[in-house]
Amino acid sequence: MLTILLTAIVIINLLFIYTLVKDLIKHKDEVMSEPASTIWTPIAQVIIYFLSTFGISDFAISTALYPKAKWVSMKKLPGTLNTQCVIPVFVMALAYINSISVGVTTLLVCIVCQVIGAYVGPYFVVKLPEKVIKNFVVVGLLVASLLILAGKFNWIPANGTATELTGTKLVLTGLLMFVYGALNNIGIGSYALTMATVYAMGMNPAAAFPIMMGACTFSVSIGSMQFIKLQDYSRKITMMSVFGVIGVLIAVFLVKSLNTQMLQWVVLVVLLYSAVSLFMAGRKESEA
């Protein structure tokens, strides 16, 4: 089953890469005219996905950075958050599923449910007004901040030992993963939410990583192909996301552990600042 799962991961991501390259070739004259920095975007990708490999949400960091840097419009931000992470998360999934033990049935349920949520999401997101998307992004930043705080103050249990879920817990986790897959498409990352769910279900905290990466590598690739089809993403940022693989490989093979405690406080401050900034900007626009 594990071999079949890994093979499926490779196939779905190769299909995404084919879809992306086809779209980039079709719009090759437009790609480099997009506003994202040719120099700083690759550097940002390395840093973002280095941190993401340790469970610090790439959605949250990118959401805090991109609007400030004016690299992508708020309308195309949700699609970009999804498309840019496909290739780096593909590498993460292969690394974590091979190295951390988690029940195959649990893993498959989480993956399938999140994929279904991710598949239906883009068709609703592209119809949302920019103001609504901005509000969702603010909520996503606040949710990510709250979950970081919950972990800091032990409001969420993180000492479980289970590697497999059954019965009601498995059904509930599947339903939540469906919701997280849909939330990905409006810019609310699923890493922190998945971690909180895994902890609450009494699972070994390490099991969060193969579940997060395994579910995301399917859900974001499938959801992202819809965003590409709907032309609702930044091609330039997504093309440069290949540099994120460098950050993943450094984290997996060179940096075996990272003191994320201080980093989480820094990320928390950045997320709250970004949420307040976006909220205040939205209020000013409404008043104007």
Rank of each mutant, 00 (worst) to 15 (best):
L183S: 02
L183A: 14
N184W: 06
N185W: 00
N185S: 11
N185L: 10
I186M: 11
I186L: 12
I186T: 08
G187R: 01
G187D: 04
G189L: 00
Y191P: 02
Y191M: 14
Y191E: 14
L193P: 11
L193D: 09
T194L: 12
T194S: 13
M195W: 09
M195A: 15
A196G: 10
A196F: 01
T197W: 07
T197K: 09
T197P: 02
Y199H: 12
G202V: 08
G202D: 05
M203L: 14
N204D: 15
P205T: 08
P205E: 10
P205C: 06
A207W: 08
A207N: 05
F209R: 12
F209A: 10
F209T: 12
P210D: 06
I211W: 04
I211D: 00
I211P: 01
G214N: 06
A215T: 10
T217C: 15
T217H: 09
T217D: 11
T217V: 14
F218P: 01
F218W: 02
S219L: 05
S219F: 01
S219Y: 05
V220N: 09
V220E: 09
S221D: 00
S221G: 04
I222M: 14
G223E: 12
G223C: 11
G223F: 14
S224W: 07
M225I: 01
M225W: 03
Q226L: 03
F227M: 11
F227W: 02
L230I: 05
L230P: 08
Q231S: 15
Q231P: 04
D232A: 15
R235V: 01
R235L: 04
K236P: 09
I237C: 01
T238C: 10
T238S: 15
T238L: 10
M239D: 06
M239R: 12
M239Q: 12
M240Y: 12
S241V: 11
S241W: 05
V242D: 10
F243E: 10
G244Y: 00
G244K: 13
V245M: 02
I246H: 07
I246Y: 02
I246E: 01
V248L: 10
V248W: 11
L249N: 05
L249F: 09
L249V: 13
I250T: 08
I250V: 15
A251I: 06
A251G: 00
V252Y: 14
F253W: 13
F253A: 12
L254S: 03
L254V: 11
L254E: 06
V255E: 04
V255L: 04
K256D: 11
S257K: 14
S257N: 14
L258H: 02
L258R: 07
L258Q: 04
L258S: 05
L258C: 11
N259C: 01
N259Y: 04
N259W: 09
N259K: 13
N259D: 15
T260H: 10
Q261G: 13
Q261W: 01
Q261T: 14
M262S: 15
L263I: 15
L263V: 11
W265M: 13
W265C: 05
V266T: 02
V266W: 00
V266Q: 00
V267R: 02
L268H: 00
L268F: 09
V269K: 03
V269E: 05
V270P: 01
V270T: 10
L272C: 14
Y273G: 01
Y273L: 13
S274Q: 02
